[in-house]
Amino acid sequence: MYKPAVIAKNSFKELLRKKGLQVLLVFGLILIGSSRLFSFLTPGEEMKMIKDVGLSTIEFFGALIVIFGAIGALSSEVEKKTLYTLLAKPLKRRDFVLGKFLGLSLATLLNFLLMAIFFIGLLLFKEHTVSSGIFKALILILFELFLIAAIALAVSTFASPAFTMIFSLFLYLVGHLIGYGHSLMEQTESALLKAAGTLFYRIIPNFENFNIRDKVAVDIFVRWNYLVKTIGYSLIYIAVALLIGIYFFQKREI
């Protein structure tokens, strides 16, 4: 059996048992369901709000679940010293990191599907059809979540759980603003600031790329080739994050 798959299977099992993640999932589902409270609005407005709330909840709670999951994936093995036994076996550290990422992605996918199916069910119940735009927005959210998983996991290979959490949440925020930050920096006179701005812009992932939900909620059409590009973008960034994770984990003293 492919070694990362062995690790993935085990860490998937472990993630499913995490109480905190289950609670987050339930909160997410409640929030998606609560968007029906807007029924005092006209039907068009109500649908828009259900879509906004649903998609945003799936993204935000998905991100929280992923970040907490990533922190637990490594730190629990370190704290409980299971890592100690595991790495004494013929297992490359690279395969361990890859396996953890795969397990985390699998758990992410499951959480995502639960929320997405509930959300789509709600839309079908209200409107009887779901536009392709909704599916496109959901797909991009999923790949954004995979990317967040890879980043949080990479950070957790060299940082404490608390730092990982703060850093990942911060990066999530900054990643949504980096586009604006860059265009602001472009206008400064200082060459140094400009260079720094460009550098950050090149390194920090631009999470706004994945954000089309504000557009599909008002029925703007998004082409499939945009999805292909953005998914490619997320896969390359995942590779970068995993390489960083593997590098630091290889050096780590256990």
Binding site: R202, N206, N209, Y226, K229, Y233, I236, A239, V240, L243
Partner: peptide
């Protein structure tokens, strides 16, 4: 990879 990404980002920005 980051260089590749910066080209992709340009294309995404344009779109």
């Amino acid at each position: 990879l980051l260089i590749g990404i910066s080209f992709l980002q340009k294309s995404i920005n344009l779109q």
